[in-house]
């Protein structure tokens, strides 16, 4: 399938109570100062913590946005791929996954966020492109098959289920893996920062 215009992957935080959301702002600002994420142009931090179930704290990059966010009432770390030259859904997903998993590693290393645990075995994937990915049964089926195929080739025992939602919402899937998906991060990304 063609790559969607935008794609979001979200990891869930196990224990959001461990860290106040305000603490994320200086962490993201430091990532910009340090150039903690190579190959991406980190631009700015946007603070939407005042919005209910919103994007929380965003680290805006040219290629995509990182967010410590609250969509659906679940705290998580997400990456929204915005500018990319991926031809297929699989490529786009693979890039986004690597980036969010790498960001999760960075979070786990942050002393200011000590104790915060991001689960690396569950991912929510959302396809933000209503033109190519309208919310209908056929599209969901095809996308689900493509995502399953990609992950089955890289990880064991992966289950991909479509998230039931209002048809105006973007198509979303929950990916559950028996093991951590951390190994999906490419070596180049691991060495970054």
């Amino acid at each position: 399938m063609n790559a969607p215009k935008r794609l979001r992957v979200k990891l869930f935080v196990d224990n959001p109570e461990a860290v106040a959301v305000e603490k994320i702002v200086p962490v993201f600002q430091r990532w910009i100062q340090r150039g903690a994420i190579k190959n991406e142009l980190l631009i700015d931090v946007a603070d939407y913590k005042h919005v209910h179930h919103g994007p929380g704290i965003l680290l805006i990059a040219h290629e995509g946005d990182y967010a410590y966010q609250f969509n659906d009432g679940r705290v998580g770390l997400s990456y929204t791929l915005k500018q990319h030259d991926s031809a297929t859904l699989e490529e786009a997903l693979s890039t986004a996954l690597q980036r969010v998993l790498f960001a999760a590693q960075l979070v786990h290393k942050e002393s200011q966020l000590k104790g915060l645990r991001i689960a690396l075995d569950t991912i929510q994937v959302s396809l933000l492109d209503r033109l190519q990915y309208p919310h209908d049964g056929e599209t969901i089926e095809q996308a689900q098959a493509a995502i399953t195929a990609l992950l089955a080739s890289t990880a064991d025992e992966v289950e991909v289920t479509a998230v039931e939602a209002d048809s105006r919402e973007p198509i979303s899937f929950t990916v559950k893996s028996a093991k951590s998906l951390e190994h999906l991060i490419a070596p180049a990304e691991v060495n970054a920062g």
């Binding site: 946007a46 919103g54 994007p55 965003l58 805006i60 946005d65 933000l128 209503r130 105006r168």
Partner: peptide
């Protein structure tokens, strides 16, 4: 709502001129 999600940062901002602004748009 769709546009804010697909082209901006998921936020619709109401202005003092009753407009709606989307930010971080390419």
């Amino acid at each position: 709502a769709d546009l804010a999600e697909e082209y901006a940062d998921d936020i619709l901002h109401i202005t003092t001129r009753q407009d709606i602004q989307l930010h971080y748009v390419h």
